[in-house]
Simulated assay, not measured.
Amino acid sequence: MNRQPAVAGSFYPANPEQLHLMLDQFLNDAATNEKVPKAIIAPHAGYIYSGPIAASAYARLKKAHDKITRVVLIGPSHRVAFRGLAVSRSETFTTPLGSVPVDQAAVQTLVQLPFVEYIEQAHTYEHSLEVHLPFLQEMLDSFEIVPIVAGEASPEQVSQVLDALWGGDETLIVISSDLSHYHDYATAQQMDKSTSQAIEQLQYERLAPESACGKVPVSGLLKLARKKSLSVTTIDLRNSGDTAGDKASVVGYGAYVIE
């Protein structure tokens, strides 16, 4: 089985050359850093809206392009309601830049957990994972993914999965989440600043459902980061009013690195 792209041509260019050029521009405009993060939180909207913010996190993988060989990718479900976490039987996930193999052994390990199951319909049209793949393909040489869609799950459940797959320098954790949705510009700025403070302080208990669409996977990562005494830094915080939209009704985007 191969998971075909669902939002190529809408969220990002379907033409490989155009996609490569767009990613290149985003990543070249982003600041890099000597230290490679263990985990990132990055947004998943259309590239014209959130691409520059996501790039600020992905640019920091440059020095690990040949070291990171597995990416654990967790995003929220936008179309299908279910309990727990959903994995896929697909052997590859495809984008206009090519196909990415799935770490089958990791997936088979996860489905032993009572709250993880195969739910193909949770993956088929879900954009929260897909939009990250071209960034990863642009930044990493050769890698496998562990794609997970989060339904109604507890921070403990997500934390347990991440801990099981934590690995070493070869494994990157990517959490997919936007922030506030459809407030005016000033309200969104205030809400997203408060959310970012809670994220930096690892206070996942303070995250309201409306603060981030990826609250479930974000909370699980923060719970585990607290347990492992890691730190979270906000490296970009903007909204669609700053990138490609009007300021009457905006969506917030944040990029965070966990080290």
Rank of each mutant, 00 (worst) to 15 (best):
I48S: 08
P52E: 06
L61T: 05
G98V: 05
R83P: 10
R89Q: 13
V72E: 00
S77K: 04
F82N: 01
P101G: 11
G84W: 04
G75M: 00
R83S: 14
I41Y: 00
R89G: 12
V72A: 00
Q108R: 14
F82C: 01
H65K: 15
R83H: 13
V111F: 09
R70A: 08
V116W: 07
V87K: 05
R70K: 10
A86F: 01
R60F: 01
F82Y: 08
V116T: 07
P76S: 10
Y49G: 04
Q108K: 15
K38H: 08
A57L: 01
V100C: 06
G46I: 03
Y47Q: 03
H65E: 14
L113K: 13
V111W: 09
D66I: 14
S50M: 05
S56T: 15
P96N: 07
A81Y: 15
S77W: 03
G84D: 06
A55N: 09
G46H: 01
Q108L: 15
Y47N: 00
L61P: 01
V80L: 08
H78V: 06
Q108I: 13
F82E: 03
I53T: 13
R89C: 11
A86H: 01
P43M: 07
L113G: 12
A106K: 09
D103Q: 12
L97H: 05
Q104F: 11
R70G: 10
V102H: 06
V107G: 07
K63R: 13
Q104A: 15
H78A: 06
H44Y: 01
I68W: 09
I48W: 07
V116K: 02
V87P: 06
K38Y: 04
I40L: 06
A57H: 03
V111L: 10
E91T: 12
R70I: 11
A59Y: 00
R70M: 08
A86M: 02
A55V: 09
I74Y: 01
I40G: 02
K67D: 15
K38V: 07
H44V: 02
F93Q: 08
Y58N: 06
Y47V: 01
S77R: 04
A39S: 02
P76D: 08
G46P: 02
